[in-house]
């Protein structure tokens, strides 16, 4: 199950990095855009803030779902090795 948990952690981390990269790219475009008016500045500011908030909100949701799946998959792990009562041999 360690691999599963690692997959969840690394997967969500990758998504977070991709998000932050996209926010940085937007900020860079904003700074290099020519003839930016005050109205355009407001649009860029709101867009950057919105993108950042969406990223920050989505990543924990994804991690919670991944944890749920991991928990379901690992719930029967401990029980598998134990013999069931129906599998026990009876001595005559």
């Amino acid at each position: 199950m360690k691999i599963q948990k690692r997959l969840s952690v690394y997967g969500t981390a990758t998504i977070l990095i991709a998000d932050m990269t996209s926010v940085c790219a937007l900020v860079r475009t904003w700074k290099t855009w020519e003839n930016v008016s005050i109205n355009d500045n407001t649009i860029f500011r709101w867009a950057t803030a919105l993108l950042f908030v969406v990223s920050v909100v989505i990543v924990p949701i994804v991690y919670i779902y991944c944890s749920k799946i991991d928990a379901s998959l690992s719930s029967n792990e401990d029980l598998k090795d134990k013999p069931k009562p129906s599998q026990r041999r009876t001595r005559k």
Partner: peptide, 20 residues
Amino acid sequence: YGALVLALECALIAALFQLK
């Protein structure tokens, strides 16, 4: 740009859940 980033992010998440 915002919609494209959102689409990319959702596709990444979908890929993660596909693995799961």
